[in-house]
Design a protein around this nucleic acid. Structure first.
Lengths: 341, 341
DNA sequence: ATGAAAGCGCTAACAG
DNA sequence: CTGTTAGCGCTTTCAT
């Protein structure tokens, strides 16, 4: 029994009784080929189950149909959704994706960024670990590159992110209107542009509410001990605002453990909406980020650059939606709302 | 200004004043190279920021460091977690992943399976859309291939999945013990092995509970109308068991909309645990699948095959954990439990 | 309209 | 130990 072998363009050519150049021309629709020859080639391709070797193709033509993608964490539903949308958009344009995760580790990120170059991708889409991203780019980085979601401190690349500040400010204003006195704002790290911009958005609001910020890092425990401190004692806040998904999970859980009731004991809001936030009772007030739109914007920017479009780097911001739900509606507010309805 | 260009092995060789073969040998640690030459090569590589072109490398050596991955849906947290674990395991062994999604569409899956061959991957890991997977494999498919999670009706490949039947049976038994009379079991489609095996697991249990099965498909509405029918009327079930993640979200939401209280009006259990199920009150009884273990098992099986290990296809089943929480504990059961504690 | 041949970047085989 | 050379599968001139 002969060892089965991946068919090459030469086998197709032999089977069709034509030259390899003709096969290539048929497959790529380049030069004009007679209907007769074209038909024979198509037939041979079908019978052999031939698909082009894109690596060899790129080697000769210099045109790659591959885009590299680096994200901090694939298990974060937001990034998963980003990659999913990206992958679909890329496919429609005939590109494939090599996806790697930096696991929120700058060292790993640097490593991945360096390694992924060995695929000679046509372009790169990166969600960086933190603001120091640009410094981690290998020397001689000259792929078309789009940076998404987390904005580097300094960057010469196209940027797509959400309007963190304004969205966050809307939550802060809403809290003031809902009669919140003291709100503890919690996020993983201010080294991440999103978290910082969201916190600054909160600070930009002048209102009755007093806001305090706490960072809990990326540890598995979610800085539980430090948070317990904040939630105990005299000056306990009467509201929590989680600035990112990880924090939100940790915080919501902690509220449950402490037996605090939402919103009576503690109002609750979250940046980064997840499906379950609509499902719990009361529903959680949250900022919904346009992840799909962000991925699509990133892709379309990258496509332009890959086509060679020059010009200044763009900095695009997409608008978030704010969903007010029961978790920030106190008795008074809730009843007023019912009257209105 | 000279156009910046990706350095090739030849430029490294010239800069180091050696031959390309020597550079290759240094980089791959093949033949022995004198320390002097090795040093010069390393230096040139560093200065140029050279990284090997893996496509050209594979073309010549025939050794690919790329594995293709096809999953039904990247936004499903379970699959996202699977890919994430896989990606990490692969990296540790020096492999990269091309990830594509079939979007739960058999036609797309067939398309992706065909296209991904053009990367000439060293192996493939697939979570199929449904049981008819094997029929969709392109002719002449002879990569090492591992199929995970959803078991095809017929397959000649290595298989990794969870022990759906036994885990499901444990839930069914627990429901009997909790005094459930009528339980409606809901899943997307019995065409998916997981759903089928879980339902069969339920059926395997002889107990006081009467179980009925409903399929709701993959539509966005989650078969809401049909479900409402089931939940209304005289013979309304007093428990729900969702057999997969999508169903679980739809079902839990519906319970909320109908104003049913868990567990008093309706006990609730789910296959496929998500983080939020611990966070809601009461917590939801759920089967936790060992996703990470599944990904690691899939990877290690694939590695063996890529090394050329022959032998019968294996069919590995991993054990699930069952988490009993408040959603299936009626008053009596709950109080008994407290007494015991 | 078709084919022959060169060469993309790399590694393996072999010569020195 | 090191260099020369052939050729992986493909696309692209350039003849014919």
């Amino acid at each position: 029994m002969s060892k089965p072998q991946t068919p090459s363009i030469r086998m197709v050519a032999e089977r069709a009784g034509v030259s390899v150049a003709t096969v290539s021309n048929v497959l790529n629709g380049k030069a004009s080929v007679s209907p007769d020859f074209a038909e024979r080639v198509t037939k041979a391709v079908r019978e052999l189950g031939y698909v082009v070797d894109v690596a060899a193709s790129r080697l000769r033509s210099g045109k790659a149909a591959l885009v590299g993608t680096v994200v901090p964490d694939l298990t974060n539903p937001m990034f998963a959704s980003f990659v999913s949308t990206l992958e679909h958009a890329a496919r429609l344009d005939g590109f494939d994706l090599v996806v790697v995760s930096s696991r929120n580790d700058p060292k790993e990120e640097a490593d991945r960024l360096s390694n992924i170059r060995s695929w000679r991708p046509a372009g790169m889409i990166v969600i960086p670990c933190d603001g120091a991203f640009t410094a981690r780019l290998p020397e001689g980085w000259h792929f078309p590159t789009v940076v998404a979601d987390r904005i580097p401190d300094v960057s010469a690349h196209d940027l797509v992110a959400v309007d963190n500040g304004p969205a966050s400010a809307r939550i802060a204003r809403h809290m003031g209107e809902a009669g919140i006195r003291r709100c503890l704002v919690v996020g993983t790290s201010l080294a991440i542009s999103n978290v910082r911009e969201r916190w600054e958005g909160v600070l930009s609001v002048a209102g009755p509410t007093e806001f305090t910020m706490a960072e809990i890092g990326f540890g598995a425990d979610g800085g539980a001990d430090a948070l317990r401190q904040h939630l105990a004692g005299e000056k306990r806040p009467d509201a929590l605002f989680a600035l990112d998904h990880m924090t939100s999970l940790a915080l919501y859980r902690l509220v449950g453990e402490l037996g605090l009731s939402i919103p009576a004991d503690m109002a609750y809001a979250s940046f980064d909406e997840m499906e379950w936030m609509r499902l719990v009772a009361p529903g959680l007030t949250a900022v919904r980020q346009p992840v799909e739109a962000m991925a699509e914007a990133a892709w379309s920017l990258l496509v332009k650059r890959m086509k060679g479009e020059a010009g200044e780097p763009v900095n695009r911001r997409l608008e978030c939606a704010v969903e007010i739900r029961g978790s920030t509606l106190r008795q008074e507010a809730a009843s007023k709302r019912n009257e209105a309805a």
